[in-house]
Design a protein around this nucleic acid. Structure first.
Lengths: 230, 230
DNA sequence: AATTAATATTGATTTATATCAACACCCAAA
DNA sequence: TTTGGGTGTTGATATAAATCAATATTAATT
């Protein structure tokens, strides 16, 4: 663990937006109780089943948030990036993580003791409301994913996944996709073989362009059409 | 709309547990701003896309909470019964319902203006925390459902659905299942035809007993085994 | 540089599950 | 009493997607 003293929770450019609701004193409390850590690509930041001792916020990098399923098969629930609270609903249920978090690239993260977050919830209503908003939004995302998984076919789910990565995660038409084919499959509910085949299909139809791990969306309208109809 | 003046939020036996955190004054406020309504079986209580003007609590009956999907296909997210907050995450995101609610049987419900709930969140931290706990638990349920949908096969999902209905919803080994085969399919992610076939299969293997809409779980261990492995 | 281990790719085959079609049943309405 | 829409049931068929298997490629390690 290390701590860069020049950056604090007060001036952090990638802090969780809900921290805007805190007073200076509260931000100081937060800053005083946080620890930073650095992770190499592929390292596990926390593990499903372990205690939710800390709330986690990435300060750089990307990580996958995944559930470990029934016979070694995982499902990726979301890709985490800086500015997002990662602590999981277990915090307010059974103090256990219900999914694991692993870095996709070199990643730095702040750890804040859960009790500090809970204390802030109890003494700052705006912060509590912000927390509710945050968890509500994530809830909607999960509902959407559930609908997508249960009603769309592979084409639609992959198209949706690619657009999500482009719009929300990497924020570019052309991005280095840190996910393996296996992981893309875990994100969109299909096998790695199917991912390969479909990516090739999209490529052949000039919808996307793939060079190794760089994905470029060429024909977004077409991809959106597939996302909606498929 | 009618109002039974003998029952108030103070003495209501099926109120949302989080109301325990309110003061008497707050309970009075709540009680003063609520309206009750009665629904016949199959009636829509609120519709996906409509404004989340009210938080809803059933006081009797059962209702299905479902998303309307892509080509007329629905997915049932949960079965609601008295004691549960039904308002949906949209309340704290975009003020729109992201799923619909329809009664399965004759059902009565209390409507509380969303602004009242939000006011209580802002002035009572314990209540806010209770709300966080509630939404967190529901979040976990959705994660679980997502995992189930993406990794289990039909047998496993149906077994899981039946156990859920028995344990959590109707709280009996033998229950009148108000859901049609179609709805059981929407709940477990399969077609009505598959539901029929599998129910028959479970019946033939003496795992359950079916007489019309009465379902009885005969061999729960076996059903649990199917739920886990399938 | 050599060896191993992960990942990616491709094709052939199998399987789970949806779809389609036909019919029986029951309840509500004309 | 008949009609008709929703529901339930069964069987035959189609199809999406997983699995299996083999090979290619890239990355990691000695």
């Amino acid at each position: 663990m290390f701590k860069d003293s020049s950056v604090t929770c007060k001036n952090c450019s990638c802090r969780w937006p809900n921290f805007d609701n805190l007073t200076d004193t509260q931000l100081d409390l937060l800053n005083g109780s946080r620890f930073q850590a650095k992770f190499k690509p592929g390292e596990i930041i926390f593990k499903q089943g372990s205690p939710t001792s800390n709330a986690i916020f990435l300060t750089s990098g990307f990580a996958k948030l995944y559930m470990e399923g029934y016979d070694g098969k995982n499902i990726i629930l979301a890709i985490a990036k800086p500015g997002r609270l990662i602590s999981g609903p277990g915090t307010y249920v059974d103090n256990r993580h219900h999914y694991s978090l692993a870095s996709l690239v070199e990643t730095t993260a702040c750890f804040v003791d859960t009790s500090v977050i809970k204390k802030l919830v109890m003494e700052n209503n705006l912060f509590a409301e912000g927390y509710l908003k945050d968890i509500s939004r994530k809830s909607l995302d999960t509902f959407h994913k559930l609908l997508s998984f249960s009603q769309k076919k592979m084409h639609g789910r992959l198209a949706e996944g690619l657009i999500h990565l482009s719009d929300d995660i990497f924020e570019s038409q052309r991005f280095h996709c840190y996910l393996t084919r296996q992981e893309l499959g875990e994100m969109t509910g299909m096998t790695k073989e199917s991912v390969v085949r479909l990516l090739k299909e999209f490529h052949d139809e000039n919808i996307i362009k793939i060079e190794d791990h760089i994905i470029e969306i060429i024909d977004k309208p077409k991809l959106q059409k597939i996302m909606i109809s498929g």
